[in-house]
Design a protein around this nucleic acid. Sequence first.
DNA 1: CCGATGTTTCAGAATTTTCTGAAATATCGG
DNA 2: CCGATATTTCAGAAAATTCTGAAACATCGG
Lengths: 194, 194
Amino acid sequence: MNLPPLVQTFVLHFGEMGSRWGINRTVGQIYALLYLSKEPLNAEDIVERIGVSRSNVSMGLKELQAWNLVRLQHKPGDRRDYFATPDDIWQIVRTLVEERKKREIDPTMTLLREVLMQEPASAEERHAQERMREMHDLFELLTGWYADVQRLDTERLVQLLTLGAKVQKILEMKDRLFLVPGSKKSRRDDAKDK
Amino acid sequence: MNLPPLVQTFVLHFGEMGSRWGINRTVGQIYALLYLSKEPLNAEDIVERIGVSRSNVSMGLKELQAWNLVRLQHKPGDRRDYFATPDDIWQIVRTLVEERKKREIDPTMTLLREVLMQEPASAEERHAQERMREMHDLFELLTGWYADVQRLDTERLVQLLTLGAKVQKILEMKDRLFLVPGSKKSRRDDAKDK
DNA sequence: CCGATGTTTCAGAATTTTCTGAAATATCGG
DNA sequence: CCGATATTTCAGAAAATTCTGAAACATCGG
């Protein structure tokens, strides 16, 4: 591995971390390298720097493309493929969340929907279905929220994140502004309006 | 594997899914089983239902305990350990996010802080450090937001999630209420409104 | 069409992870 | 302390995955 020490530390760390994610070491290392690199790199560049086989890099890049985590570029008068990560780190986050949702949540949602259609044949199955219903509704709430937030432009998103729990204060303020004072029952339902 | 079909489908799915998370098949299956079960189960129960070795179940349960994902219980007059998941699914989500943060984010933050302390020895390292700084700041923003939200009680949290991007509207409203009209910041935001 | 350059595929080797059975350890009631 | 019951540990087997080198494939300029 032929890298400046500072870069190498980061690349090695991402390699290790890779296994805690769904990706393997090489993929993690390639991604870290591209993320830190100022210039797009071609496959041979990566081989030299990381020190793994050419074919391994090829497969790694293919996987990163499947994740939409790298862009493919070309230089004029050069047939080789060059790879880079988006400059905008927020774009990276958005892609990452999107792809993880696609891989981790969506298949489970599909299964839950199927199983919830079936008729329970026993008390045990009835209870199991109730639990699955809870999970299904939870996922629905989370993915609905996510779909909304994903649409915000970055500035608004940062604003929202910076506020953090102060949002709570604003929600309370909104409640006071729009709710009939003292109507306890209507509180939560009203919050869902508009 | 000796389970009602509906339960079995779910357990098998979680087993497969396990590998996309950081857990192995058996751990995924055990968790799914406990999640669906009305009663707490002991290790032997799990062996019978899932059909893996006793020792494998023991290790799986140990891992789930390390994740804080199962509670250990005892029945009066029974020496065996019984396991269950929290009834409240929101508690499960909170634990899951907390533990994933601990495993996936915190170590990276530690490393980033260390590396950002060092003096870059070249233009390449300087650029790499800038990228790491971006990642560091992003993580800080996200974890700060997360720490805030984690503290909300469930009702408020659900309220927040239900609102989704409608929060944006409330933020805009807040802007209009609290910013001095005509100030640069507020004019720009206003221009984006509807 | 050819040779040069670049990329992908894939079978098997290397490595890592998972799983098992047997043995060790722990804890209880008597 | 003993025997019965429950749990954990751990070395090696089994399985899954990652990685490599060689060959196949693709595309270019001439």
